[in-house]
Amino acid sequence: MIFSRTAILLGGIVLFASAPAAAQSRLTREEYVERYKSIAVAHMERYGIPASITMAQGLLESNAGNSWLSRQSNNHFGIKCKRDWTGDRVYHDDDAKGECFRSYPTVEDSYDDHARFLDSQPRYDSLFAYSSTDYRSWARGLKAAGYATAPDYAERLVRIIEENRLYLLDRENGERLYAESRGIAVPLPDAPCAAPRVPEAAAECPIDPDAFGVTINGHCGYTVGMTNGVHHITARAGDTFESIGRNFRISASNLRRFNDLRGTAQPAAGDRIYIERKKRHWEGGTLLHTAREGETVRILAQRYGIRSRSIEKLNRLDRRTALTEGAQVKIR
């Protein structure tokens, strides 16, 4: 078993918590969701993982933040160390005695690691074919991929989602819908900044990337376009990932990741820069792309709004290799 046992077992573990941990007040499910739902929604936008699934797993695996493991190590998803883990760790009896679990500085770090783990592990690749509103398929897929050994794991997740109406978080304006379902008045957000007509040297204009929709076509001097359902801008002369990131409140490292780049790479004027994670699959009708001279896997990935790794897997290619002119490359 890769992960900790779920809520039924974790609830009992609380009895053996240390005195300081036991002295902490217990969170209710409602309090837990209220505290962490914004992180889950942000990860849904970045990775495509339903916010309802993230919240249900957090509730189940951490017993709503009350389990010994979550209080001792901020580990809310029961993720074990594995070979590639270089961070802090704690030891806890699970399937075997003294198993190694990841320990995080904050709960937010645990949520971030959970999203990256699902996104990076090949065993979960099939899940991303499902819509971020299809929580039932995600729940079944997690169980089938081996996230937990409990035979009714998928049913538990679905029950938590439906009992707590977490599926509302998966919808557009989900946090508002969820709050309204609980009778909480939510103030209207400030209107996003209008497309400014300013010179390129104008001051940076921060904007929440989740605040605009497909009908908004400009922010802070950038035209926001969409390919394959993914938002992007065109880099201007002098732009860096750091400056773009400040304008759209996205870290430079995430921008590089969204655009299949690493290290200290910077954009060139005219480059298409995705400001959210590209999709794993091309949703258009075209099945094949006829390669042109000098094209690479990454060039195609940027053109179609899909991840380089998806094209590599479909065609067994290396993204650094130039494609042969006229070659038929699968994109779906």
Results as ranks from 00 to 15, higher is better:
171 R>L: 06
166 L>F: 00
138 W>V: 07
312 E>M: 10
76 H>V: 01
324 T>V: 13
62 S>R: 08
222 Y>A: 05
68 W>N: 11
236 R>P: 03
139 A>K: 07
150 A>W: 02
105 P>E: 13
262 R>G: 15
96 A>G: 12
76 H>F: 05
266 Q>K: 12
278 K>S: 04
63 N>R: 00
214 V>W: 06
120 S>K: 12
75 N>D: 02
133 T>N: 13
119 D>H: 07
118 L>R: 04
143 K>W: 04
160 I>D: 01
320 R>Q: 11
15 L>H: 08
315 N>Q: 11
140 R>P: 02
239 D>E: 01
106 T>D: 09
196 P>L: 12
14 V>G: 09
69 L>Y: 04
321 T>V: 15
201 A>G: 08
122 P>R: 06
135 Y>D: 07
221 G>R: 07
56 A>V: 01
230 V>C: 10
92 H>E: 06
212 F>T: 14
299 I>G: 15
39 I>W: 14
44 M>H: 05
44 M>P: 01
284 G>T: 08
84 D>W: 15
108 E>W: 12
42 A>I: 06
234 T>A: 00
157 L>R: 01
53 I>G: 04
41 V>R: 05
112 D>V: 02
45 E>Y: 09
317 L>G: 10
288 L>Y: 15
2 I>T: 12
260 D>P: 12
13 I>S: 12
104 Y>W: 10
74 N>S: 13
127 L>D: 07
86 T>H: 12
218 G>W: 08
204 E>V: 09
215 T>Q: 10
36 Y>W: 10
100 C>K: 11
44 M>Q: 15
314 L>Y: 11
92 H>G: 01
283 E>T: 15
16 F>W: 12
93 D>H: 15
317 L>R: 01
133 T>D: 11
327 A>L: 03
19 A>M: 05
